[in-house]
Amino acid sequence: MTSLDLVPGLITTREEVAAVYGGSIYSGGIVPAPKSNALFVFSDPAAGAKHGYTFDGWAEDDDEGPLFLYTGAGGTGHQEMVRGNKSLMDTLSNGRTIHLFVSSGRVKGKKLVMQRYVGRVKLDESEPVVERQAPDSAHEMRRVFVFRLRPATEDGLNVLEGDVQPPAQEFSQVELPKKPKIPAQPGTKDKATEQHTTPQTTANVPGGPRTVHRREGLLCTAFEEFLESQGHVCKSFQITVPGEPGTFTPDLYDATDNVLYEAKGLTTRNNVRTAIGQLLDYRRHIKDVPDGMRLAVLLPDEPTPDVRALLESLGIALVTRTPEGFAGFPLSMVEAPLSPIHG
């Protein structure tokens, strides 16, 4: 084969793709193709389920648009940011294009898997990867990387009903360690690391440029580090709910003071309202924590007096960032001269 036009909806095979664009057909689901400056990602939820790859699929759209989740490489033990996973992460800095395929049955009479070309995607520039817990083929819980993919062009993607994340079959709550910090990789620091330490960037997504705010993640990381400096133990939870796809994960749980936090990068009424709803929803599902778990909203600065009053009326604490550190409740987290919040 000398040509193969990658048009969304195309049905092909890995062998045909490799023959034209390069890359190995034996290197797992993440296939670098240096000769065409591309990287091919093959998702096969049915085959991956035995390795705990239950995160793959189209997730619910968020403020930044469509989102496809893809579980990284490594079928047993903790996944590491090496080989295919590193190749995918490195696209943030090396300019390689990412092309997404989803399995589409088998060639009649053969074991050859057909692949449907979904389209060109890119890593989410605000949060390219998250860390989750999943069982491997030996049913041992381990760390997996879940990459967050966004449409990369306005050409459209071939998305079918069967591509969505399957709903969870049962309730589960898995304890997560403190918010994972994916290590910087050699060769990616110049661009990728800089992107994730600035408050915002402009991402080109379908519909025009969109400002992607990173304030929330930076705020949460800084507060977590502050709590740990005070001797607190921080973690979170990975929760599934029957009948609903995917997982949801609170921003931060301070196990030392039994406080659940939701961080917002902007101090607006709508952001605080959203945080309130998230906290109340999380509290319904979080189990196996001491009685009396408190709720708190973490903000980058002071909200308006009426928004403060709203939180106080609901018994939800407020912590804000200050030039000296963080001010707020519970008081055991702060030291003078930081001012506590009493209304």
Rank of each mutant, 00 (worst) to 15 (best):
L280W: 02
H342C: 08
A47F: 05
L219C: 07
A73R: 09
P330S: 06
D44I: 05
L295A: 02
E175T: 10
H51A: 14
K178D: 07
G105H: 04
V159F: 04
L260M: 12
P206K: 07
V164E: 01
L92E: 15
P290C: 12
S3R: 13
W58T: 01
D90V: 04
A275Y: 05
F226R: 06
L92Q: 14
I341P: 02
H342E: 13
G77H: 02
H285S: 03
E170F: 01
V129T: 12
F171T: 00
Y53P: 01
Y253E: 01
F145R: 05
A138T: 04
L260S: 06
G95S: 13
V334L: 07
P245W: 00
A18C: 10
R142E: 00
P199Q: 09
D291H: 14
R142G: 01
V205D: 05
L260N: 06
R269F: 08
S137I: 10
E302D: 09
E244M: 00
V41Q: 03
R143T: 13
E312M: 06
D281Q: 00
D5H: 10
A138Y: 03
I98T: 12
S103G: 08
M81D: 06
L227Q: 10
T76G: 03
E15N: 10
E324H: 05
F40M: 09
S332D: 12
P32A: 11
Y21Q: 07
E216V: 03
V297Y: 03
K189P: 00
F40S: 05
K179N: 08
T188S: 15
D291A: 15
T54V: 12
L157S: 12
T54G: 06
G277V: 02
A255N: 03
N158R: 11
M1G: 13
L298I: 08
D251L: 01
K191T: 13
G28Y: 04
L299C: 05
N271F: 03
M114I: 04
E175N: 09
G217S: 09
G328T: 08
D56K: 00
E324G: 06
A203E: 15
Q278Y: 07
L218R: 12
N158A: 14
G23T: 09
N85K: 03
K108Q: 11
R14Y: 04
L298E: 07
Y117T: 12
K287R: 15
A309D: 10
A134G: 01
F68D: 01
E194L: 15
P128N: 12
V259D: 10
K189I: 14
R215Q: 12
A168L: 00
V146N: 04
P32R: 11
E194R: 14
N204P: 02
P245Y: 00
P34K: 10
G265K: 02
P167N: 00
E170T: 01
G57W: 00
R308V: 11
G84F: 12
